[in-house]
Amino acid sequence: MKHTLIRRLPIVDRRTTLRWLFAGLAAGQLAACGELGGEFSWSPPEALTGKGYGTDPDLLDPKTPWPLTLTAAELKTVGALVDLILPADGDWPSASAAGVPLFIDEWVSAPYPSQQEQRGLILPGLAWLDNEARKGGEPSFAEASPEVRRGILDRVAFKDRIPPELETAGRFFSRMRALTIGAYYTTAEGWKEIGYPGNRPASGPYEGPSSEAMSHLRSAVEAMGLTLVSG
């Protein structure tokens, strides 16, 4: 599905935009880029093809065979975005400090249909963030003031408040939010924050719920007028 936001300039796809960008660079007209801040197209980039890890990879020594493809500028945008999604909080690191941008790069660079479909949403989405920032007079999303960045996200991050013309941007943000949470809470820091206590071999019968866990459950169940019978 193609959603094109028509502003002041004719519809162009992202590759055309890039061609303009490079043409502009060649002509020494870098400043003109800022002028592009008005129009935007969500045309997906060409999907990456290449080999995945195959149907019989070495499971004991996992390797990611595909090359990472995000540009330094895109990674900066990703970093700024994921740190708004999950900023540092008390003892817990920010998403970028936990390595989320690298994961996003691995994800959109993976040569599988689902990841490539998401790449088709995410890459234009990163460009959209920059475009919005430029409309606010900033050089890019990553370099924009926190107020401008939040202003952009506030329009796409709350499901009931996304204007119809930003539906695609909303989907992009929602995807990035889910990926950021998934990437973050699968790290050692994420496990610690969320309190995942598992993946620990033990001997003897399964211990089952702790006494604290059982008292909490009992109160919760009784508050609903139900009876707790131990299994």
């Binding site: 900023p87 909080d89 817990w92 991050a157 939010r177 699968t186 994420g190 496990w191 969320i194």
Partner: peptide
């Protein structure tokens, strides 16, 4: 249960920032 967190299952969360962190923790 308190299972190993994975990549899926966050599609219905809303917003961003510290509120989002709290929502993820609460949902776990």
């Amino acid at each position: 249960g308190f299972r190993e967190p994975g990549l899926g299952g966050y599609g219905d969360l809303d917003g961003y920032g510290s509120d989002l962190r709290r929502a993820v923790r609460g949902r776990y």
